[in-house]
């Protein structure tokens, strides 16, 4: 695996303070390597967006980082501790090194300006020396990348469909040519042909420009196909991490297994969809032990009392990690 570009260590994020605090992200360890696509999946409310906003310090109040560190490794120069950057340095970091496509970003285009104006502004801010003609050509290129005909450049956001607005946001993120791209549910409003096309473009660009992608979605089937590694989040913690193909072929955590069986299948016989019984945990009253145990079909003695920690499941599984008592080697790893 290539060298790390972003290391997240024991990150904790709360909403609120003191007894009222909701622990939305707990002790998360995650490493993004240069040039890889790391998928992050999990149920609604599991803390995926909170993690993304925490590590870029864009948390809306009352969100606070209550522990851990985030280390960024620039292409040249010493590692940077993102959580202790001064506001000015933080702005540079965000602007030059990372770009985020927010969840629901399709509603964050400015309704009173044309798409062209907004896109050209971003390009100008990023490449101040260029001519208007060059910027316009680049804007057209970017829109073509996300499958929007150049004759729609002068549309206002309300004149575009939901999926088209989402694609404009992706184009804007790519305009910055960052080292790290964080995408939070960027393709939820898109048909599969378009999704595939955009993800294909993203993969091609990544090969050319070498950036790394943290791709957040609840669509696990999409991730399996397009990411190098996948991390699964449940109740604020990472519960499994593995190379994409291995995760699909042999899920170790029962929650991952449940997620993989919640999709209607397009091919093959129609099967009854089970989903995952029960409801997501209440962050204010987390179950003891493994947070998944009340819903887990395979829960047994230690599960409701002791917390399994994320660790390698056994000697024969390099590059994998799981937090589940079915794989006790994992829990045996000292913290």
């Amino acid at each position: 695996m290539s060298e790390p570009v972003l290391e997240i260590r024991k990150l904790c994020v709360d909403y609120g303070l003191g007894d009222e605090a909701v622990h939305a992200v707990r002790d998360v360890d995650l490493t993004l390597h240069r040039g890889e696509v790391l998928g992050l999946a999990g149920e609604s409310g599991s803390g995926k967006s909170t993690l993304a906003y925490g590590l870029t310090r864009l948390l809306p109040p009352p969100g606070v980082i209550s522990g851990g560190e985030v280390i960024y490794h620039p292409v040249d120069g010493p590692p940077v501790d993102v959580l202790s950057l001064s506001p000015a340095r933080l702005r540079d970091f965000r602007w030059a090194e990372t770009s985020i496509v927010f969840q629901g970003a399709m509603n964050s285009l400015n309704p009173v300006h044309k798409v062209s104006t907004q896109l050209l502004d971003v390009i100008r801010a990023h490449e101040p020396g260029t001519t208007r003609a060059a910027r316009l050509a680049r804007a057209r290129d970017l829109l073509r990348l996300v499958g929007i005909a150049a004759d729609r450049l002068d549309s206002y956001p309300h004149q575009l469909s939901g999926g088209m607005r989402q694609r404009v946001m992706i184009a804007m993120a790519l305009a910055l040519e960052p080292q790290v791209v964080i995408m939070d549910e960027p393709t939820t409003a898109l048909d599969v042909v378009m999704q595939r096309q955009i993800l294909g473009q993203l993969a091609e660009l990544r090969e050319r420009l070498g950036f790394a992608v943290l791709f957040i979605t609840h669509d696990l089937s999409l991730l399996v196909e397009f990411s190098d590694r996948i991390a699964i989040m449940y109740g604020g913690r990472i519960v499994e991490e593995a190379p994409a193909g291995e995760l699909y072929r042999r899920a170790l955590h029962p929650y991952t297994d449940g997620l993989l069986h919640s999709f209607p299948a397009l091919r093959g016989p129609r099967r009854e969809l089970t989903g995952i019984p029960g409801s997501p945990p209440d962050l204010r009253a987390m179950p003891t032990g493994c947070a998944f145990h009340p819903r887990c079909p395979r829960a047994f003695t230690p599960c409701d009392a002791e917390l399994p920690l994320l660790g390698p499941p056994g000697d024969d599984d390099p590059g994998r990690a799981v937090a589940c008592w079915l794989h006790p080697a994992a829990a045996a790893v000292p913290r």
């Binding site: 999704q195 993800l199 294909g200 993969a203 089937s221 196909e225 994409a244 193909g245 397009l266």
Partner: peptide, 15 residues
């Protein structure tokens, strides 16, 4: 239909 995510077609070749 051909473009629907198909986990059996794993990473890279999809593109």
């Amino acid at each position: 239909i051909d473009s629907a995510p198909d986990p059996d077609r794993i990473t890279g070749d999809a593109v």
